[in-house]
Lab assay of single mutants.
Amino acid sequence: RPMNAFMVWARIHRPALAKANPAANNAEISVQLGLEWNKLSEEQKKPYYDEAQKIKE
């Protein structure tokens, strides 16, 4: 299954978030990633939607 825009973004940002929160488990990191993603504007998300579309094609 191809990655969606959030997954493209999260793949880039997960390592830094995990390093900054070494005690957090994957579920907690995923929740935090979701919160951070939701704070982004549509303009900030656009490159990730574009990349996800390329992956689908």
Rank of each mutant, 00 (worst) to 15 (best):
P47D: 03
N38I: 09
E42A: 14
L33G: 00
K19D: 05
A23C: 11
P47Y: 10
E36N: 07
I29K: 01
E43G: 08
Q53C: 06
Y48E: 00
E51P: 02
E43F: 09
A20R: 10
Y49V: 07
D50G: 04
Y49Q: 05
A18H: 10
H13G: 02
K39P: 00
L33Y: 01
P47W: 09
K46D: 02
P2G: 11
E57L: 11
A10Q: 05
G34I: 15
H13Q: 09
A27F: 12
N25Q: 05
R14E: 06
A52C: 05
P22M: 03
P15G: 09
P47F: 07
N26R: 10
I55A: 06
M7R: 09
L40W: 02
K39T: 05
K19E: 08
R14Y: 14
F6E: 02
K45M: 03
A16G: 08
E57M: 09
S41K: 04
E28H: 05
A23H: 14
I29G: 01
Y49M: 08
K56F: 14
Q32K: 12
A10W: 06
V8W: 06
A23R: 13
I12Y: 10
I29R: 02
M7H: 07
P2E: 15
A27I: 10
E43D: 11
V8I: 15
N25R: 05
A52V: 08
Q44F: 05
E42N: 10
F6I: 01
P47A: 06
P22E: 03
P2W: 15
W9I: 01
N26F: 15
K39D: 04
Y48M: 01
A27E: 12
E57K: 06
A52R: 02
E42I: 11
A5E: 02
E51S: 06
A24W: 15
M7F: 12
R1S: 12
P15A: 14
N21W: 12
D50Q: 10
E36P: 00
M3T: 10
R11W: 11
N25V: 03
W37V: 00
S41N: 08
L35T: 06
K19W: 07
L40C: 02
P22G: 03
Q32S: 05
A5G: 09
K46M: 07
R1P: 13
W9R: 00
A24R: 06
K39W: 04
A52F: 11
K45R: 10
W9F: 15
W37N: 00
A52K: 02
E51K: 11
E51G: 03
K56C: 13
P2H: 14
Q44T: 04
H13F: 12
P2Y: 14
A5M: 02
F6G: 00
D50L: 13
N25L: 05
A23G: 14
P22R: 04
K56I: 13
L35F: 09
F6V: 01
L40Q: 02
N26H: 14
F6N: 00
P15Y: 13
N21F: 13
R1I: 13
P15D: 09
K54M: 09
L40D: 00
A18Q: 13
A20K: 10
M3W: 12
L40T: 01
Y49E: 08
M7E: 14
I12S: 06
W9Y: 13
N4D: 12
Y49W: 07
A5I: 02
V8M: 09
F6S: 00
G34L: 15
A16T: 09
L33T: 01
A23E: 12
P47V: 06
A20S: 08
M7D: 13
A27W: 14
P15C: 13
A10E: 08
M3N: 08
V31D: 05
R1T: 12
S30E: 15
A20G: 06
M3Q: 07
K46Y: 04
M7L: 12
A20P: 02
H13W: 12
A5F: 02
L17H: 03
A52Q: 03
R11E: 14
Y49C: 04
A23F: 14
M3D: 08
L33N: 00
M3C: 14
P2A: 12
A27L: 12
K19V: 07
Q32V: 10
A16M: 15
P2N: 13
Q44S: 07
V8E: 03
L17D: 02
F6K: 01
Y48R: 00
S41G: 05
K54T: 08
A18E: 15
A18P: 01
N21K: 04
K56Q: 14
L35E: 07
L33A: 03
A10K: 03
W37F: 03
E28G: 03
N4W: 10
E57Y: 08
F6W: 02
I29Q: 02
Y48C: 03
V8C: 07
P22A: 04
A16R: 14
K39S: 07
K54W: 08
I55K: 05
W37P: 00
K46E: 04
N21H: 11
A24I: 06
G34S: 14
A10H: 02
R11L: 14
Q44E: 13
I29W: 02
E43W: 07
I29P: 00
V8L: 15
A10G: 02
A18M: 15
M7G: 05
Q44C: 05
A20I: 07
A27P: 03
P15H: 10
L40K: 02
Y49A: 07
S41I: 02
E43I: 10
Q53G: 05
E28T: 08
A20E: 07
F6H: 00
F6R: 01
A20T: 06
K54E: 06
N38H: 06
N21A: 03
P15I: 12
N26Y: 15
Q32H: 04
I55M: 12
A52W: 12
S41Y: 02
D50H: 10
K39C: 05
K19T: 06
N4G: 07
K45N: 01
G34A: 15
E57T: 09
E43P: 06
A23K: 13
E43N: 08
E42F: 15
G34P: 02
I55L: 13
E43C: 05
N38G: 10
W9V: 00
A16E: 09
E42M: 13
K54S: 07
Q44P: 00
I12K: 09
V31F: 14
A10Y: 07
G34Y: 15
L40N: 01
Y48I: 01
A5V: 02
W37Y: 02
A16P: 04
N21S: 06
P2K: 12
V8P: 00
N26W: 15
E42Y: 15
M7C: 14
A10M: 07
Q53Y: 08
Q53L: 11
E28F: 11
R14G: 12
K56T: 13
K45D: 00
A52Y: 11
A24H: 06
L17E: 01
A27T: 10
N38P: 01
A5T: 01
S41R: 04
G34H: 15
A10S: 09
E57A: 09
H13M: 15
S30A: 13
P47C: 05
A5P: 04
W37Q: 00
P47K: 06
W9P: 00
N25H: 05
L40H: 01
V8Q: 03
I12C: 07
A10D: 05
E51A: 13
L35Y: 08
A52P: 02
S41E: 03
G34R: 15
E42L: 14
S30V: 10
S30K: 10
Q44D: 11
I55D: 06
N4Y: 08
Y49I: 08
A20L: 12
R1W: 14
A52T: 03
G34M: 15
K56R: 13
A20N: 08
P15N: 08
S41A: 05
K54R: 14
M3L: 11
N26V: 09
L17G: 01
N21I: 04
G34W: 15
I55W: 08
H13R: 14
K54I: 08
A18W: 07
H13Y: 11
K46N: 04
E36R: 09
K39Q: 06
K39L: 09
V31P: 01
N21Y: 13
P15T: 09
N4C: 15
H13E: 03
Y48N: 02
E43S: 10
D50A: 12
P22V: 03
K46W: 05
Y48Q: 00
I29E: 01
N26M: 10
